[in-house]
């Protein structure tokens, strides 16, 4: 089959970007979206042009590296599927695909379809963990965790951090991402001691980054390749509300968002 790819090209954050249109012939319906870009890139390189930069790694839908908008939908039209597992048979012969990067102030563009998602790391850094140092863990069966609790924690923990929720949200909110981690750890008995602090810190960091607000419309969960439920956002708000009421005077700190990449070689 033949496809026309209309792809956003932008050399770097400071230069202006625009769409380029590339016809791609010999598209095999069994190909993944990323393999289709591979084929395009091979032909671009052979013509002496720069290939389209896009992020990818595991190509089996779990690492969370890949992702861009395909015809206005994060990760493309197939639900619960990342771009790397989206096969071309979901498109019609001769169709035009508009491909553009995640767009959010919190995800500054790096090149073409590659964006900087370190904001998500900083949210985890703020408190997305259980503070247990190596070696001081009790036996695994000391804390019983009911099957339903474990299953619900797993539902939330399935997040791959790809950023599709932010990309799909009309407000570029990171509520689903943040809520997923707060829920995963907060549901489990191991995570209870830090529940308040975790909610306060992570919500604080999320709000320090230039994400928008959640309006509970559910575009995030629809775009989420792991189908994280909207429930996690309510859980985040509940934990945040409770923690705010119970707040002791320990200071919650956040780090300033960093958008630069340059490094000096001093060690």
């Amino acid at each position: 089959m033949k496809l026309t790819l209309k792809i956003w090209r932008q050399k770097n954050r400071d230069e202006k970007g625009r769409f380029f249109t590339y016809p791609v012939e010999n598209v095999n319906p069994e190909m993944s979206m990323l393999e289709c870009l591979d084929v395009l890139n091979e032909s671009l390189i052979e013509r002496g042009e720069e290939p389209v930069a896009f992020e990818h790694d595991c190509r089996e839908g779990i690492c969370g590296s890949c992702g861009f908008m395909i015809n206005g939908v994060a990760h493309g039209p197939q639900s619960a599927t990342t771009a790397c597992q989206l096969t071309m048979r979901h498109f019609k012969d001769g169709q035009e695909l508009t491909i553009e990067p995640w767009r959010a102030a919190a995800f500054p563009l790096i090149k073409d379809l590659v964006v900087d998602r370190r904001a998500l790391d900083r949210i985890i850094q703020a408190g997305g963990y259980i503070s247990v140092s190596t070696g001081n863990a009790p036996d695994g069966n000391n804390i019983p965790v009911g099957k339903d609790i474990a299953d619900r924690a797993m539902d939330a923990a399935a997040c791959i951090g790809c950023g599709a929720c932010v990309a799909a949200c009309p407000n570029a909110s990171a509520a689903l991402f943040t809520g997923a981690k707060i829920s995963h750890l907060g549901i489990l008995p191991q995570g209870k001691p830090e529940q308040d602090r975790r909610a306060l810190s992570m919500v604080a960091q999320m709000n320090t980054e230039p994400f928008g607000s959640c309006t509970n419309i559910g575009e995030c969960t629809a775009a989420c390749p792991k189908e994280i439920p909207l429930e996690v956002i309510a859980t985040m708000n509940r934990d945040y509300r409770g923690a705010t009421c119970r707040k002791r005077d320990d200071l919650v700190q956040v780090v300033a968002p960093v958008t630069g990449w340059s490094s000096s070689s001093k060690s």
């Binding site: 963990y129 247990v132 863990a137 036996d139 695994g140 804390i143 924690a153 797993m154 995963h184």
Partner: peptide, 10 residues
């Protein structure tokens, strides 16, 4: 033990 304590949902 370590992973359970970290909140891995086994």
């Amino acid at each position: 033990d370590q992973c359970v304590a970290q909140g891995v949902p086994f």
